[in-house]
């Protein structure tokens, strides 16, 4: 069983989550929300914060389930079904609590929560954590860094797309433009952060 305390280099894990293994641009996870929400800076910020929170918390919850229940019982093959149910239950619970106790926060963040259950970034984080056998602390750090990397690209793309629209540059129309922006950003990430092996 992987250890509770970090056995891996946490800084390296953080950098890899944000840059070299960026969820949106390198792993292609969470692209639906990327296409839909980067038209608008406000919703990009809201979604990024919500995703970072959920990926972090999903790592916190699923690690014990995987390592204390599924692995000892030899039920690793049930990981997908367990993880998605736990995430769905957790997201519903958070939405419920926020709406009841923090109406202001709910108005700015809560509306993005239902979208997160079907956001592959969250399930992707927990599946990768299980696959890579990270320690408990390591998997939480990886969860948060994946969310941060997602947020970084969301904000970059929202900024670029906003500027393009402002200048009236919309020659390719919505989705095509979004893909080209993503492609160019991805080119930067691939080259500068050493994804190509040397």
């Amino acid at each position: 069983m992987p250890a509770l305390l970090p056995t891996e280099n946490l800084l390296e894990l953080l950098i890899s989550g944000v840059f070299t293994k960026n969820f949106l641009l390198i792993y292609f996870l969470g692209l639906c929300s990327f296409l839909g929400l980067t038209k608008d800076m406000g919703s990009s910020i809201g979604m990024s914060m919500a995703v970072t929170f959920v990926t972090g918390m999903a790592a916190v919850i699923t690690w014990p389930i995987f390592n204390f229940i599924l692995v000892p019982l030899g039920l690793e093959f049930l990981q997908t079904i367990c993880f998605i149910l736990v995430i769905a239950a957790f997201v519903q619970l958070v939405e419920f609590i926020i709406r009841k106790h923090q109406p202001a926060l709910y108005r700015s963040l809560g509306i993005y929560l239902p979208l997160i259950t079907t956001n592959c970034a969250v399930l992707g984080v927990v599946l990768l954590n299980a696959q890579q056998n990270y320690s408990y602390v390591g998997s939480i750090v990886y969860g948060i860094s994946a969310g941060l990397g997602y947020g970084l690209v969301m904000l970059l793309a929202a900024g670029i797309r906003g500027k393009l629209l402002q200048r009236g540059v919309d020659m390719f129309g919505g989705f095509t433009g979004a893909f080209l922006v993503a492609g160019l950003l991805s080119l930067i990430f691939v080259n500068y952060f050493g994804v190509i092996q040397f």
């Binding site: 229940i69 599924l70 019982l73 039920l75 049930l78 079904i81 367990c82 149910l85 239950a89 519903q92």
Partner: peptide, 9 residues
């Protein structure tokens, strides 16, 4: 959801 999960586990 919790019930379904419980059974599966």
């Amino acid at each position: 959801i919790i019930g379904a999960l419980f059974i599966l586990i």
